[in-house]
Amino acid sequence: MPPYIMSLALTLCAFAALKAQAFSPDDYRQPAAQWPAAELHKQAGPVAELAPLPELPPVDWHTPAIETLGQQLFFDPRLSGSGQIACASCHDPDLGWADGRRVAFGHDRQAGARNSMSILNAAWFDHLFWDGRATGLVEQALLPITNPIEMNANLDQVLTRLNQIPGYRQAFTNAFGPGPADAVRLAKALAAFERRIVSRPNRLDRFIQGQYNVLNDQEIFGLHLYRTKAGCLNCHNGPLYSDGKFHHTGLSYYGRKYEDTGREQATGQIEDRGKFRTPSLRDLSHTAPWMHNGFFPSLRGILNMYNAGMIGDSQLHPDLPQLSPLIRPLHLSNHELDALEAFLNTLSRRPLALRAPKLPPKQININDNDSHH
């Protein structure tokens, strides 16, 4: 075959292949089961398609009275050692149920080591905190209260304090039946309230449910990249836009200032060093700054890092495991990064406003106020 004919044949083959991969927004203006096949890494494991949130998983101990009590407790600073810090101090409904800070301030204005994870949709996660040290909301609920950097309280003293407040004594009885507040009741009350902190349907949810005009062509192109070339679906999948797993992305700062060994702190396993739980991308526009250390206020900056393949294995500290195999250079153009960022901004809807409830007043000892006699 003459060289020019072979060259023409190769050009036509390349054009055909390009045409076969051509993107059309209409490919996504149909039920998700008919979308183009996702491009997934072989080590990603089972991957769920993007979807609206399901019904809240039921638990047999959640009642309206327990939830109402939990809401009061969540906003009550009397759960802290200083009497000044509430759960809501770091999980503010006006700040995406996080706190808008790089890291939280706790007892005596001590700075924590990690960014406050939003509690939105926490009910669906099997492991909580960045290192997954708690399995479920009940187990999680009391840990910040007794943490010396966070609320710095003695749990027995907190329970004694609550049982001395008539309004709480009555509320615990209404919620759980006769008996004082104890650790189990306190944890379940807080968990009952926290599990109802759920994202509102966003534009992608509406698009998936058939409202195909709510996303423009650029945003749909970003959705396509998310599921294909950008590889986001490997980790940020399902209705939570998170696989709930732990991955090493190279941001542990191991051997340097701000070192955080992540999941290893919960398991004691060297192979977990530097791994952190995949955060949910729901409502991410309201939960900045991002990553476990809160170092990243720019969404585009994060996309640029992933596009470059993070720091790469060659620059890792020798005591660290290899990066997750899901991390690799993506070679996205600026046009593609623009589309991906536009799509990510469709995943958010401002959480419902919630006012702090009225708290039970402390019992007043009339002898303490009788200063005139």
Results as ranks from 00 to 15, higher is better:
149 I>Q: 14
170 Q>D: 14
156 D>Q: 15
145 I>W: 04
149 I>R: 12
150 E>G: 04
168 Y>G: 13
152 N>E: 00
142 L>I: 07
137 L>N: 13
168 Y>I: 13
159 L>F: 05
138 V>K: 05
150 E>A: 07
143 L>T: 03
141 A>P: 10
138 V>S: 10
164 Q>S: 11
155 L>G: 10
159 L>K: 05
143 L>S: 06
148 P>C: 07
155 L>C: 09
142 L>W: 04
141 A>C: 12
160 T>Y: 09
145 I>F: 02
141 A>S: 15
149 I>G: 06
152 N>H: 05
165 I>E: 05
171 A>D: 12
153 A>S: 09
171 A>T: 12
161 R>S: 06
137 L>M: 14
160 T>A: 15
171 A>E: 11
146 T>Q: 09
167 G>T: 03
171 A>L: 13
138 V>Q: 12
139 E>G: 14
151 M>A: 04
169 R>T: 14
143 L>K: 08
169 R>Q: 15
138 V>P: 08
142 L>N: 06
162 L>D: 09
147 N>M: 07
137 L>P: 08
165 I>S: 06
141 A>E: 11
150 E>M: 08
166 P>L: 14
155 L>T: 08
148 P>Q: 14
165 I>A: 06
155 L>F: 13
151 M>F: 03
163 N>K: 11
156 D>A: 15
144 P>L: 07
155 L>K: 07
165 I>C: 09
139 E>D: 15
158 V>P: 03
149 I>E: 08
149 I>S: 12
140 Q>H: 07
154 N>R: 07
171 A>K: 12
150 E>I: 02
163 N>F: 13
140 Q>S: 09
161 R>F: 00
138 V>G: 10
153 A>F: 00
141 A>D: 09
152 N>D: 08
143 L>D: 06
155 L>E: 10
146 T>G: 07
154 N>H: 02
170 Q>F: 08
140 Q>F: 05
143 L>I: 10
154 N>Y: 05
159 L>G: 03
146 T>D: 03
171 A>W: 14
153 A>T: 00
139 E>C: 01
143 L>H: 02
157 Q>L: 09
138 V>F: 14
138 V>N: 11
148 P>W: 08
137 L>S: 09
145 I>Y: 02
151 M>I: 00
137 L>C: 10
170 Q>H: 11
147 N>I: 04
166 P>W: 05
157 Q>N: 11
170 Q>Y: 06
142 L>D: 04
165 I>H: 09
155 L>M: 10
158 V>S: 01
164 Q>P: 01
172 F>L: 14
159 L>Q: 02
156 D>K: 06
144 P>R: 01
